[in-house]
C-alpha cells in the first residue's frame, strides 16, 4: 500500500545541506593541527591528520552525490534547484581544497620557514573562521525555509553573511602579509620550494574564497 500523502514529499535537501557544510568545515578545521604538526616537523602526526581530512572529504563527496540524486527535476521547491546545487558545489570545494593543500604539503614534506610561521598560522586560523561562519550561515537554511525566505530571519542571515565577508576580507589581508614575509626570505630558499609555498598559500586562500562564495549563494536564495 502506497500512501499518497507520504509519496507527495520529495527528500528535503535542507538537513543534508546543513550536514554537508558541517563536514566541509570539520575537514578545513583540521588544517590547524595539521600545519602545527608540519611546523613542529612531526610528520607521523601530520600524516594521521591528513588521513582524517581525506576521510571527511570522502564523506562530503558521498553526501553531495546523495543530495544530487535526491533532487530530481520534478521537485517543486521554494527556491530554484540550480541555486541549491551551486551552493552544494561551493560547500564541497571547501573540503576539496583542505584535502588538496594538505596533500601537497605532505607529499613534498614541505617546511614552513620559521620567520613566516606565525603569520602563516594566523592566516590558516582566520581561514578556518571563515569556513565556520559559512557553516553558521548555512545552518539557518531550515529557518529560512520555515519563514518562506522573508522577514526577521532574512535580516539575521544577511548579518551573518556580512560578518562572513568581513572575515574573508581579513583572510585576504593576512594572505598578503604571508606572501610578503615569504617574499622577504624567498631568495634564501630553494626556488622549487618557494614556488610550491606560494601554491600552498594560494590554495588556502581559496578556502576563504569558497566560504565567501557560500555566502554569495545563500544571498541569491534570499533575493
Amino acid at each position: 500500500m502506497v500512501n499518497v500523502l507520504a509519496s507527495l514529499f520529495g527528500a528535503s535537501p535542507v538537513q543534508p545541506l546543513e550536514k554537508h557544510i558541517d563536514i566541509a568545515y570539520q575537514s578545513s578545521k583540521l588544517l590547524i593541527p595539521f600545519f602545527e604538526a608540519v611546523i613542529a616537523g612531526d610528520w607521523t602526526k601530520a600524516t594521521e591528520i591528513r588521513e582524517r581530512i581525506v576521510a571527511y572529504e570522502n564523506e562530503a563527496d558521498d553526501l553531495k552525490k546523495q543530495i544530487r540524486l535526491g533532487l530530481p527535476k520534478s521537485l517543486f521547491m521554494p527556491v530554484p534547484r540550480e541555486d541549491l546545487l551551486e551552493l552544494l558545489l561551493v560547500q564541497d570545494k571547501i573540503a576539496n581544497r583542505a584535502k588538496d593543500v594538505s596533500g601537497l604539503v605532505l607529499g613534498r614534506k614541505m617546511q614552513i620557514p620559521a620567520v613566516m610561521a606565525e603569520d602563516f598560522m594566523g592566516f590558516i586560523r582566520r581561514t578556518v573562521d571563515a569556513a565556520k561562519q559559512a557553516r553558521k550561515s548555512v545552518r539557518e537554511l531550515d529557518e529560512l525555509y520555515a519563514t518562506g525566505f522573508r522577514g526577521a530571519e532574512v535580516n539575521l542571515v544577511t548579518n551573518l553573511i556580512e560578518e562572513l565577508d568581513r572575515i574573508e576580507t581579513e583572510t585576504d589581508e593576512l594572505q598578503i602579509r604571508v606572501r610578503a614575509s615569504l617574499f622577504a626570505v624567498e631568495s634564501t630558499l630553494d626556488p622549487v620550494n618557494v614556488v610550491f609555498l606560494y601554491r600552498v598559500i594560494e590554495l588556502t586562500g581559496e578556502i576563504g574564497d569558497m566560504a565567501e562564495r557560500v555566502g554569495r549563494r545563500l544571498e541569491l536564495l534570499l533575493s
Binding site: V4, L5, F9, G10, L75, F76, M77, P78, Y145, G148
Partner: peptide
C-alpha cells in the same frame, strides 16, 4: 478526502512552505 489534503499541502507549498514536493505524484 486524500486528494483534498494533497491540494491543501500544495497550497502550503505555494506559500513557499514546503522543502520539496514531488510533482510526479500530482
Amino acid at each position: 478526502t486524500t486528494h483534498t489534503l494533497v491540494g491543501a499541502v500544495l497550497g502550503v507549498g505555494l506559500a513557499r512552505g514546503i522543502d520539496a514536493i514531488d510533482l510526479r505524484v500530482v
